[in-house]
Design a protein around this nucleic acid. Structure first.
Lengths: 240, 240
DNA sequence: TAGTGGTCTAGACCACAAA
DNA sequence: TTGTGGTCTAGACCACTAT
């Protein structure tokens, strides 16, 4: 059976299991094979199997019940954006048309306030990128983002029109670590309102995001003002 | 040294390490002891040490960097509520005065719409609880919550004034599994506005929460309308 | 090159769910 | 009672960081 071949790591195994889940292979029972069966099927250790299941569980795709099995969770409804782990809006919506309209792209020097936010020295060089982001031609958010030039030596409008995260990961070789978000209520500026096709002063869910590399250094901060109708979010978490 | 004694599980070890972090023991280096040192200090296996660190990392308290060490993350600022894992607002703010004013507490039968939300049959008994929640005497949210009577056989106003989650966990012996949240923009009803001391029609961050037991069964759903000034949220996530 | 976290194998026992 | 996931020990090697 084809899924027996060539599994070498928990991430690879997680990917294969995700595939089988999405193909509906387990929809009858609603459960994954048992750990012992997966050990047998993929010829890996229990540690590896448990690691793969932990990856899927952290992503909210399955939930293990002791003594009973690993259950596939209900489908997440379609139109929501994940809060928490994200590798960029483009990766979040693989089968949707994601567009970014670059309003501004400039290399600036951090003033006192920005330096504090970026954990850098005053005067350090920072890319400032303002974009309107839309999904399936619906405006989603007005984003103001800053990137430390130390880690992103080059940037242009064409790159900013696409996925900056994919650029940083694939072309610059940066490895992402974790990010902090703060969510609160904000209000649209005139320019944000114009681009989102709303009115100045309209309320917006505002997310401040600080993103760190795997070495713990901040490389990117951003402020997103989300369209109050078009943007919804979901979060799936363990309570244990 | 006192921290060497009596560690039997990753959760226990995580608790002890958290204590040492909060006491500032590692503030000089910003790093935890190495895995090998922790193995030595607590006389446990590497697996156990790694498990404890994973618990802290999942909670956003530390971040491990391969080849370098396990770093303590910056303090989370004070006044924010966690999105993602939560065991109730009371547990989230251990050193604040959390009050709940019960507006309504009734045992009802699920209509078609509620039955769908609660994953139960039409006509099943459900507790409906409406509360104004406040932290340090500031109104935070207007909450409408439903609890399946199947899992919560008894409820009264006194219990609802306190922590329903503590009641369910400690007195009813329920074990929580995971929860799904949907975050979007909402608008205050007249009653919600009155209680939150805002105006009808004011915007509010709205969080719909479905909470499941560790056996995968939904036991509680709720809708929270948050005060747009008093309520802010944070989320810390891994990007790996 | 040495130190440190990441992954993996192999094997054991425990806690909980379901029959 | 049996099956299944949760935790733990012991030991090994790999990948990345820092020097």
């Amino acid at each position: 059976m084809e899924w027996e071949i060539g599994v070498a790591s928990k991430h690879e195994l997680a990917r294969k299991l995700r595939q089988r889940i999405n193909q509906g292979e387990f929809s009858e029972t609603g459960k994954l094979p048992t750990e012992d069966q997966l050990i047998e099927q993929y010829q890996v250790s229990r540690y590896c199997v448990r690691g793969a299941i932990a990856v899927l569980a952290a992503a909210g795709e399955v939930f293990p019940v002791r003594g009973s099995g690993v259950f596939v969770r209900e489908d997440r409804v379609g139109n929501y954006m994940p809060i928490g782990s994200s590798n960029g809006i483009v990766a979040d919506f693989p089968d949707r048309k994601v567009s970014s309209f670059v309003q501004e792209l400039a290399l600036i020097r951090a003033d006192k306030q920005l330096a504090k936010r970026m954990r850098c020295a005053e005067g350090d060089q920072v890319w400032r990128v303002v974009r309107l982001r839309s999904v399936n031609d619906q405006p989603i958010s007005y984003e103001t983002a800053w990137y430390l030039k130390e880690y992103v030596p080059y940037l242009n409008e064409e790159i900013a029109r696409g996925s900056l995260y994919a650029y940083m990961r694939d072309d610059l070789g940066l490895t992402f670590g974790f990010d902090d978000k703060v969510i609160h209520m904000g209000w649209l500026t005139a320019e944000a309102a114009r681009l989102l096709e709303l009115n100045e002063g309209d309320p917006a869910i505002c997310i401040e995001d600080d993103a760190f590399l795997s070495n713990g250094k901040l490389f990117n901060a951003s402020r997103n003002l989300y369209h109050y109708k078009n943007a919804k979010f979901y979060s799936m978490a363990s309570m244990r």
